[in-house]
């Protein structure tokens, strides 16, 4: 530390008029959230993991598939990195939102001049940008994998099914991200958010399998349909390749059709219904977070 005299001199200099930066609130929120994210090592770890996973998965699926895949089939594998992208997205939301409470930086943001609602809006903005980031990465890594190890045949143009697949991927991510966002706001802890989130989806997966089996045995159509609309099932359904494309492996399709509960589940796998459910879940998660955030002290 330099001498106290120089400090006092500097304090006296504070009275000078200084130009203030003109910037809209959205710009301020974006700049701050972007700075917090790109300085966070965990964000880059998740980014790296996703890129490696999607590239390897796309190449491996194409290279080691029992049937020969052309460009058309290979290209449809790219959006399927969505599952991993959704998980990375949810983890990033949890790790960039929940600690704001533990470190009390969210509170400091409000003290510094943000309205509570603006702070919340900043986190929503961050989540939207993260969704684009991880979706874009999943696409880029998958495409890079395909280009590095190209399938046989001629490259084909994107189809309506491809666009639907990407829209479904986005909605699946919204369910994952929305649940992470909600848990972060409720628990106010990064570890608790990640633990509950992953725990829930694991438990839901097991419970859904048992429930589907039981529904098939008893002939409870309503139960099978209801299970298909649990949050994890909706997200999984939207990232399921079979929802958008015919299977390149007829034998797989046959096996799936014979599995208990598949026929019942398949009935509920309409894109429109799953998309509607995903949107409803996402909005509900954000609404719960907002009400809780407004009600509680920072």
């Amino acid at each position: 530390m330099t001498g106290a005299r120089s400090h006092l001199g500097s304090v006296e200099a504070l009275g000078r008029d200084r130009p203030r930066r003109r910037s809209g609130l959205a710009g301020i929120l974006f700049r701050n959230e972007a700075l917090k994210a790109r300085k966070r090592p965990a964000f880059w770890v998740l980014t790296g993991l996703l890129m490696v996973f999607v590239a390897v998965a796309t190449v491996a699926t194409g290279r080691f598939s029992p049937v020969e895949m052309g460009w058309k089939t290979g290209w449809t594998m790219v959006p399927m990195g969505a599952n991993m992208g959704s998980m990375c997205f949810a983890l990033a939301v949890a790790l960039l939102f929940a600690p704001e409470f533990k470190w009390r930086t969210g509170r400091q943001g409000v003290i510094d001049g943000l309205a509570k609602e603006s702070f919340f809006a900043g986190k929503l903005l961050l989540s939207a940008v993260l969704a684009l980031w991880f979706a874009g990465l999943a696409w880029a890594a998958g495409a890079a994998g395909l280009l590095a190890f190209p399938p046989t045949g001629e490259m084909t143009a994107s189809t309506v099914a491809d666009l639907k697949a990407w829209a479904g991927m986005g909605l699946g991510m919204a369910v994952w991200g929305g649940s992470a966002f909600c848990l972060a706001a409720l628990t106010r802890g990064g570890a608790a958010t990640v633990g509950i989130l992953l725990g829930y989806y694991v438990v839901e997966g097991i419970a859904a399998s048992i429930g589907m089996f039981w529904a098939a045995m008893k002939g409870y159509d309503w139960l099978a349909k209801a299970i298909g609309y649990l949050p994890g099932r909706v997200a999984e359904g939207l990232s399921s390749r079979e929802l958008y494309y015919a299977s390149p492996l007829p034998a797989d399709a046959g096996l799936l059709a014979e599995s208990p509960g598949f026929a019942l589940l398949a009935e509920s796998r309409s894109f429109a219904l799953l998309a509607g459910a995903a949107a409803a879940y996402s909005l509900a998660f954000v609404a719960i977070s907002f009400v809780n955030f407004r009600k509680r002290d920072l």
Partner: peptide, 19 residues
Amino acid sequence: IAANVKRVGRARIEECLDI
């Protein structure tokens, strides 16, 4: 982060760090 919310520039950050 705080300077963005308060809409002050980078020069001011250096001034305050000096103080």
